[in-house]
């Protein structure tokens, strides 16, 4: 996934690297859900924890900001919409609308919530191997009826493997077309069609080679996943996250 985003897995020995993927997935979901209802005090606590965690796993703050640049623009929109549309005590009178105190508070809370969840996601990805995620997802789906857990885990693995392949193919196709002067064509439909047909056709050819290789190696769904171990520290992390979740929804 390194080509999609700088937030691929980075090897390390921090607490987050060592904890079990299932523990991380549970905590991640609990924190995401609890932040929906969290007020300033809860979010402050969460942000403080997140700050310590990001220093602990050595995530670069500059890279985080760069990665979230589009997201931050969206947040600015959300904040502005809240600040202008919530009725309350006016603090600034613009030409078309008034900025209210309540609106600013509301907007800050909403943006803060979304921001903490996104930072959690980035921390999770940079401390968890893809194979571990696959094994974790399989473990969670296994007890569910009607869901072929092994098939799903396999498809997940294949998808992750295909993404860099597609991105490579995109780069090659775009270079080839630029070399042939595609920029002179202004019709967007023409450009999309002429770009996607060769892209998909070539990718399907690669996928067919993969299928052939899988069949030739007598591939089956019964594979050995990385061993997962849920230790004492994982239990305490899940308990802490659950405690936080209960605190947030009752507050």
């Amino acid at each position: 996934m390194a080509e999609l985003t700088p937030f691929s897995y980075r090897p390390g020995k921090s607490f987050f690297h060592r904890s079990d993927v299932r523990c991380k997935l549970i905590c991640f979901s609990l924190v995401s859900l609890s932040s929906l209802n969290a007020q300033a005090a809860g979010l402050g606590l969460l942000t403080f924890f997140l700050f310590i965690a990001m220093i602990h796993i050595r995530l670069s703050f500059r890279a985080v900001l760069w990665e979230m640049r589009y997201f931050l623009i969206l947040l600015a929109f959300v904040f502005a919409a809240r600040a202008l549309s919530t009725p309350g005590e006016a603090i600034a009178d613009l030409m078309i609308a008034t900025v209210t105190k309540e609106g600013c508070n509301e907007g800050t809370l909403v943006c803060w919530r979304l921001l903490t969840v996104t930072c959690f996601a980035l921390s999770f990805v940079s401390t968890t191997r893809t194979t571990e995620i696959k094994a974790g997802v399989y473990w969670f789906l296994k007890p569910l009826p009607f869901i072929p857990a092994k098939r799903v885990a396999t498809m997940l693995g294949l998808t992750i493997r295909f993404i860099p392949m597609i991105l490579n193919q995109i780069r090659e196709t775009a270079d080839a077309q630029r070399a042939r002067g595609i920029e002179n064509r202004k019709n967007p439909v023409y450009r999309m069609v002429k770009f996607i047909i060769p892209l998909m056709r070539r990718t399907f050819e690669d996928a067919d080679k993969l299928i052939l290789a899988m069949e030739a190696r007598c591939w089956s769904e019964n594979r050995t996943d990385p061993e997962l171990s849920f230790g004492k520290s994982d239990w305490s992390a899940v308990l802490a996250a659950a405690g936080f979740f209960i605190l947030m929804i009752t507050m």
């Binding site: 996934m1 999609l4 985003t5 995401s32 932040s35 990665e67 959690f120 996601a121 990805v125 968890t128």
Partner: peptide, 14 residues
């Protein structure tokens, strides 16, 4: 599951 496949390189139930 947290893989960065959603837009802006993010993921997660959030």
């Amino acid at each position: 599951a947290g893989l960065p496949v959603f837009s802006a390189g993010t993921g997660g139930i959030g």
